[in-house]
Each structure stands twice: as structure tokens, then as C-alpha cells.
């Protein structure tokens, strides 16, 4: 389990990191927490000539939650997401989901940036970010641009990020007070990717659902933001029929494949179960 050799770089600002990427093109890759990339390198499924470690770039760190938007640096770890009280009170959904990622050791090093930018359909953050309508701030040689999470994922490991760009920050609108939330994940064991997972936000006004957002994880080659499922809830009293209609719409939107986590029919079944639980919990928290 020894990876092929590489040249190691540890730049201290984004500009320096970008020039290394430009200089070496396809041969260079950035590394954040490394808990997706290093296993791939050990299996020799990723061959990297120049490894650009982002750990010393201070501007990629930090969490700010003032002004209606949470801004999270790409190098913020899952552990930091969980232990940041300001973020937990602004967007408790992030703590609830982060606690279900991998195991403690992985969460100390695994970053939100790596998790969203890697494009692995098994990762939890992409669906979560779609549910929250996050915006990804990418920095490249020509400056910065922002891509919505809901438009970022093209296929497994293919995203809207160009090779010469670095994900710098994630901007997340803070949901209004009283928004119900839930992240529900079915996995075979600690550390496993989801068999099925679901992120749900529900707002209620005057006894009926005024807004909803639903995203599904590891049930297609990208996360699935299930607009039709959310639409089935909006305007309803969140009665059983509306909840069942939302589940049916989401199961219609996913496209799981058969693998060692089970056949397609099983995954669709589990997807429906986790989504129903997530809707029930989010609705019970909405006020």
C-alpha cells in the first residue's frame, strides 16, 4: 500500500498554489484532508506527479455566520463544523449531517472542501449543500467565480470546477428561524458511505408548508436535488398524503445502481424509508 512517488508542495497562499497548478497542468492535484485522495493513491488508481498541500493557506480556513450567510473555508474540517457553536445554532443541519460522516479520526482531517469538490457520489456534503442552496466560490488564474451547488455536479468525479481552479469558500444562506431540518443516513457500518441518505429542510407558516428542499445522496452518479419532491410538500398541511407524494417523487428522481450495498430495488426502498424519516423529523422541528 505504498503510492507512487510525487513532488510535494506546501504553498502558503492561493496565488502560489494556483501557479503550481498552472505550471504542472494535469500532473498536479491539490490535497486537503486527503482521506479520499490518499487511499486512491495507495491503490495506484490516482497517479500524481505534484501534490499541492493546502494546509498552510490560512485564507481557506475559518467559519463566519454573520449577515444572513454562513461562509465556510474549504479547508474547514468536519470536526470543526461539528464543534463550531455559532454554525450549529445558525445551521444545525450541518452538525447533524457531519456527525454521520465516516468516523472521528477521518472527521479530524476530512474537509468540507474536499468532500464537495471531489465529486464522489458517496460523499454526504454535496447533497447537503444542494439542499441548503450553497454557492461554491472557485478561484482560478482569471479570478473568482461562483457556482451553485445545484449546478456543480456533472457526473461521478466530474464537476464544474476547472483543473486550474481551487475551491476557496462555500457560501450558505442561513435558513430562517423555525426551519425544520433533518439528515437521515442508512449505512452498513461506521465509516461506510450511505446506502441511501437524505437532507431535508421544511418551513411552516400558518399550519401549512411554505417552503421545502430535499436532496438525496449516493442514489445516482451525482447528488439529486429533488425539486418535485419538495413541491409535493409545499402548500400542504404536511399530511400523510403529501409526505407519501414527496417520497414517491424523490424515488422517481433517483437512479441508483446495483452494487455491494444492494440491488436497485432495495436501494429505492431504503431511499424512501430514509426520506420519510427525514421529512417526519424535519416537520416535527419546524415551527
Amino acid at each position: 500500500m505504498i503510492p507512487a512517488g510525487f513532488e510535494y508542495h506546501r504553498p502558503t497562499d492561493i496565488g502560489a498554489a494556483l501557479s503550481i497548478l498552472q505550471e504542472h497542468g494535469d500532473e498536479a492535484r491539490v490535497i486537503a484532508g486527503g482521506h479520499s485522495l490518499i487511499p486512491m493513491m495507495k491503490l495506484r488508481m490516482a497517479d500524481i506527479g505534484h501534490l499541492v498541500d493546502l494546509q498552510d493557506i490560512g485564507e481557506l480556513r475559518g467559519i463566519a455566520t454573520d449577515g444572513g450567510t454562513a461562509v465556510i473555508g474549504a479547508m474547514v474540517t468536519q470536526h470543526e463544523l461539528i464543534t463550531h457553536d455559532g454554525l450549529a445554532s445558525a445551521i444545525p443541519l450541518i452538525r447533524e449531517a457531519s456527525l454521520q460522516i465516516a468516523d472521528p479520526q477521518v472527521r479530524y482531517l476530512g474537509t468540507i472542501g474536499g468532500n464537495v469538490a471531489n465529486g464522489d457520489p458517496g460523499n454526504d456534503m454535496p447533497g447537503l449543500m444542494q439542499c441548503l442552496d450553497a454557492q461554491f466560490e472557485l478561484t482560478g488564474p482569471d479570478g473568482s467565480r461562483t457556482v451553485p451547488a445545484r449546478a456543480f455536479y456533472e457526473a461521478a468525479y466530474f464537476t464544474a470546477r476547472d483543473d486550474e481552479e481551487i475551491l476557496a469558500r462555500i457560501h450558505i444562506p442561513i435558513p430562517g428561524a423555525g426551519t425544520g431540518y433533518a439528515y437521515e443516513k442508512q449505512k452498513r457500518k461506521i465509516g461506510d458511505y450511505a446506502t441511501a441518505a437524505s437532507a431535508v429542510l421544511i418551513s411552516v407558516q400558518g399550519g401549512s408548508c411554505s417552503a421545502a428542499s430535499i436532496a438525496m445522496t449516493n442514489l445516482a452518479d451525482t447528488p439529486i436535488w429533488a425539486a418535485a419532491a419538495a413541491a409535493a410538500l409545499v402548500g400542504s398541511s404536511l399530511d400523510d398524503a403529501a409526505r407519501s407524494a414527496a417520497v414517491a417523487a424523490a424515488v422517481e428522481a433517483i437512479d441508483p445502481v446495483s452494487d455491494n450495498r444492494g440491488p436497485v430495488e432495495f436501494k429505492k426502498h431504503v431511499a424512501g424509508v430514509v426520506l420519510r424519516r427525514a421529512i417526519d423529523r424535519a416537520a416535527s422541528r419546524a415551527s
Binding site: 500500500m1 510535494y8 490535497i31 486527503g34 490518499i38 487511499p39 495507495k42 472521528p104 479520526q105 477521518v106
Partner: peptide
């Protein structure tokens, strides 16, 4: 040696990490 078992856990700058999934350079 695949970041599952935790037998290689060490403390790295106040973080518990699996030393099989960290390069010495990091």
C-alpha cells in the same frame, strides 16, 4: 492499512488521525 481499523491512531497536533492515511510530508 486502509483507514478503517484505527490501530495506527496517533495524535497529530491535537487531532486523532490514522497514521496510515497521512503522508510524512503532511
Amino acid at each position: 492499512e486502509t483507514s478503517h481499523c484505527g490501530a495506527c491512531t496517533v495524535d497529530l497536533d491535537g487531532k486523532s488521525v490514522k497514521a496510515c492515511t497521512v503522508f510524512v510530508a503532511q
